[in-house]
Structures are given as C-alpha cells and as structure tokens.
Amino acid sequence: MPELNTSSLPDLVFAFLFFIMMVTTMREVTLKVVFHAPQATELQKLEKKSLVTFIYVGQPTPDLIKKMGPATRIQLNDAFAETNEIQDYIAQEKSSMKEEDQPFMTVSLKADKDTKMGIITDIKQALREAYALKISYSAAMKVQ
C-alpha cells in the first residue's frame, strides 16, 4: 500500500498559520478615533464578550481630522455619533440580546486618556437614561 505523501503538510499548516495571523490583527470595528487607554492597576477582565458593547471616545484619526476638526468624537460601531444617539444605540444593542442576558449587559467605555470629563459625563448620563448601568472604564495595565 503506498504511503500518503505528507511532505506538503508543513506548507499547508503554514498557510493556515499565516491566515490566522493576518485575521487576528484585523479589528471587528474600524476605529475612526485615535485612542490611547489610560493606565491603571486594579483592573478586572471583562467576561462574556458577547454581552459587552463598546463606546469609543477620542479625536478623529489624522485623515479624518481635516474634515471633521480636532474635537473629541464618540464612535458607536462604525459611525460617529452624538450623545443623544447613545440611548437608541444601547436600546438597539439590548434588544439584540437574549432576554435573560439583558441585565448583564456591560458597556465598555474606551476613551482616550486626554478626553475631557465633560463628554464622558454626558455619555454616563445617557447610559443611565438607557438603563445600561453596568459599565467598565477600559484601561491598560500599568507597567510597574
């Protein structure tokens, strides 16, 4: 019985490996704001990624800054938004979840470290109105 030729197996696996490496660097959402997370030490991991909704806050990216100006913007999914749109967005995200999961919905606030608190406060107020009370201030681990 002729043996199966496995000499091309490494190539196949490498191709797969490269594919995974390319894919993982891609984001689910293309960021339209520049954002450097603030640093902190008392961090907790966010569990259950499917229950997490992200709100990005920061200055627009350099090529968008020409069009939009340097003002801090909020990004929901793929588009810029105003604070009054947050409530609808949260309601929409909430309704797309299973009913038993809805109370555990978490909003992760990914804001740039130089953002002014005014806009963050507006977002927080909007989240309160939308009854999305579990939030997480996204931060990076501080290197000691």
Binding site: V13, K124, S136, Y137
Partner: peptide, 27 residues
Amino acid sequence: AFMLLIFFLITTSMDTDKGLPRRLPPP
C-alpha cells in the same frame, strides 16, 4: 508550525478587554 498555530489561536482568544468595573445609579 502546529505549535505556532496553537500559540496564536490561544493568545488571540485570551486578549480580553480589561477595565475598572463600576455601576451607575439608576436615572
């Protein structure tokens, strides 16, 4: 190659978001 592959598979799923959890008061 398999080992590299498995390493990447594991590390990418471990890359979870971290943050300071807080609870907002109801409106």
